[in-house]
Amino acid sequence: MFFIFGFRTKVDRFGVVTRVCRNCGNQAAQVITRRATKFTLFFIPLIPVRTRYTQQCTVCGAEYGIARAEAQRLPVG
């Protein structure tokens, strides 16, 4: 008997906010994304391993991590 297991990462667009970028300093749209990694068994996602939130500037393309509390607090639209 053998088991097929691994990890799968799903990227969801959480929202878009207008903020000042930390990298370029421009007031621009920032795309908030959520990356959820889950342990899979026979290609079925079972156990969440890690969830990360990131913010990416639409002007310069800089991407950096943000805390979950900050991502949920932002007024997305």
Rank of each mutant, 00 (worst) to 15 (best):
V16W: 00
E70V: 08
V49I: 15
F39T: 02
T40G: 02
G77T: 12
A36Q: 14
Y53G: 03
L41A: 04
F7Q: 13
Q56N: 08
A36W: 00
M1D: 10
V76L: 12
V49C: 07
V59P: 02
Q55E: 13
R50W: 08
F43A: 11
K10G: 05
K38Q: 14
V76D: 04
D12H: 12
L74Q: 05
C21Y: 02
Q27E: 15
F43V: 07
F2P: 08
F5L: 06
K38L: 14
C24A: 09
C21F: 04
N23W: 10
R73E: 09
R68D: 12
Y53V: 02
L41M: 11
E70G: 01
L46P: 05
A36T: 15
E63P: 01
F2M: 14
A28H: 08
A36C: 12
V11E: 15
Q27M: 12
G65S: 12
C24G: 04
F3S: 10
G61C: 04
G25C: 06
V11W: 08
V31W: 03
R22A: 12
D12K: 14
F5Q: 07
T37F: 03
G15Y: 00
F42T: 06
Q56V: 08
R50G: 03
V49A: 09
T33I: 08
C60A: 07
R35N: 11
G61P: 04
T33D: 13
R22L: 13
G61Y: 04
Q72K: 12
T58S: 09
R8P: 03
C60F: 07
Q30K: 09
F7T: 14
Q55M: 14
V76Q: 10
R35I: 04
R22K: 15
E63N: 09
E63Y: 05
C60V: 06
Y64D: 07
D12E: 15
A71C: 05
E63K: 10
R34I: 04
Q56T: 15
Y64I: 04
R22M: 11
A36G: 10
N23Q: 15
G6F: 00
G61W: 03
R19N: 09
T37I: 05
T40H: 00
L41C: 05
D12F: 07
F5W: 13
G6D: 01
F3P: 08
L74P: 00
R22V: 11
V16E: 11
A28L: 02
F14N: 02
P45R: 00
A36N: 10
R52H: 10
R34F: 01
G77S: 11
I44P: 03
Y64M: 09
R52K: 14
N26W: 13
I47K: 03
A67W: 10
R22G: 11
Q72C: 06
F2G: 10
R50F: 06
V76K: 14
G61H: 02
R73A: 15
I32F: 01
R13L: 11
V17F: 03
F2V: 13
R13C: 08
Y64W: 14
L41S: 04
R52S: 08
G65K: 14
T18V: 09
C24E: 05
G65V: 10
R13S: 14
G6N: 07
F3T: 13
N23C: 12
A36M: 12
F14Y: 14
V49Q: 07
V49L: 13
I47Q: 02
M1N: 09
L46R: 04
V16N: 08
K38N: 13
